[in-house]
Amino acid sequence: MIHQDSKTILEVSGLRAAVEGVEILEGVDLIVKSGEVHAIMGTNGSGKSTFAKVLAGHSAYQVTGGSVLFEGQNLFDLEPEERARAGVFLAFQYPIEIPGVSNSHFLRLAYNTLQSQRGKDELDPLEFEDFVREKMKLLEMNPNFLDRGVNEGFSGGEKKRNEILQMALLEPRLAILDETDSGLDIDALRIVTNGVNKLANKDNAIILVTHYQRMLNYIEPDYVHVMRGGRIVKTGGKELALDLETRGYDWVGVERRVPASA
């Protein structure tokens, strides 16, 4: 929801980034304020996922220019774990499996790390069990999942639910959801997006990275941005997503690309 007096959470200016010497982001500008939901759309290779990973601090990507302020602080001064503790959350497109490490152990460590960062009480295993079970109801998850290895043998849908569960536990200021809709059947999509909607509030912000408009039927964005060639070439309201659904991506931003290569 857009509010006139809301605070700026993220301010991205002219962000450029490369992987193995190839520049993927070529000057991204974006401002995200609290309470807002932004959708970033675009074709494969447009730079959407790279943008998400650069914000989270993945080491494979080198920032080659521009700046990112997170609540006024230079984001690139922080290590990936410090960004997480500061409230930047990335729901992964492909959550990785960590065999042998139980979900409950992992979730509790992540939760307690944040609690201590925020000067709040940590939970012991029993307290945490009660706490996390409550959160799991939100995502209609089977409790036996706590005893399984992190993402180990999870279906695509279970992995995505687990990502949103972590979002629910960690209560980030900025949640970046990288193609959370991919690989979900329609029921799972409803459950996951319903979970996200319940977590959205006036103090946090959400960036949805997605190919398809269908997710936006469930989570209503305040802004829709189209990425192309490593930059945001068009910004509009939720109706832009519907336009993209019918007309495709080819027409977007063509008029702006001409001077870029000159």
């Binding site: 989270a56 601090g57 993945h58 080491s59 290590e79 990936p80 774990e81 997480a84 503790r85 959350f89 990335l90 992964f92 959550p95 990785i96 960590i98 065999p99 042998g100 490490v101 139980s102 152990h105 992992f106 460590l109 992540a110 790390t113 944040l114 960062q117 290895g149 972590q166 960690l170």
Partner: peptide
Amino acid sequence: FYFAQRGIGNEEAVSMIINGF
């Protein structure tokens, strides 16, 4: 990176992975 994104530093992450293994 997955651990780091959840606020868990590298040392603790390696320890957890190894002990799980």
